[in-house]
Design a protein around this nucleic acid. Sequence first.
DNA 1: CAGTTCGCCTGGGGGC
DNA 2: TGCCCCCAGGCGAACT
Length: 282
Amino acid sequence: MPEAPEVQNVLQYLEEELKGSQIERVKVTHPKLAANLPVEQFESRLAGQRFRGFHRLGKYLVFELDNLDLVSHLRMEGKFQIYPSPKDVDDLDENEAKHIHAQFLLQDGRVLCYRDTRKFGRMYVYDRPENWKDLPVLVGVGKDALDPDLNAEELLEMTRKRKAPIKSVLLDQSVIAGIGNIYADEILFESRISPFSVTSHLSKEDWQAIIDATRRILSSSIEAGGTTIRSFSYGKNHAGSYQDSLMVHGKEGSCAHCDTPIVHTRVGQRSTWYCPTCQKEK
DNA sequence: CAGTTCGCCTGGGGGC
DNA sequence: TGCCCCCAGGCGAACT
């Protein structure tokens, strides 16, 4: 589900709520959630740790604890929610409770719950490296989509030989981290580049347009609290509003610029919307 | 190495 | 109402 803007909002929410809080006990009920450790070790290593630092790279959340780092990837439907007390969790009806796969009981009595209907999300616990960006799970993840150092020359060089359509390359997290299916469509619309364009055909100017559009769109979306199309939310009832600003993704009607009907198609198995008039194939 | 397909999971919506 | 099929904002393994 969430892409960089949604993950950033989750991060801000958790930092406000959890900074300095200590974990008393962890209970994981879906073993696959703990991706790099047996569940028992995952649970026991986290006991007693405090939340110290909060970071994001692409769609990954990184929590620096006392001497461990906890990494979370929400994939399609992962959500965090904090309840005032264990009783509030016990009082949930079966439907609300059945998709909670991890509970972090905090020293102050609150409970951080992780909920994930499709069970795609993953968490990792590691000894804390000097720099959190050296965490094993983040090796191979490219620069964040909002990294000020992201530049056109570098992207041009990195993708010089790639024949895949540009939309597929924007979804490749080793090139740019944090763009998913919704924002890829929006970024290409604003850049006026067809999602089918052969990536190696893009010029430095094209890449600069993509970088500029990415910064504008993701920043606006973060401001708006992210995009809530299906199920994205964080906390209790926090929902974003950027879905109201989408130009092509999921749109049935006509292009806002030229009135051509928006085309719904597939690129690399992913549902894709674009304007065949405004967006030129390179 | 690069590109494509499949599998992981569950629920919602449309068609009959 | 029930059933079946398709779809979903991600990612990695396995394949060509």
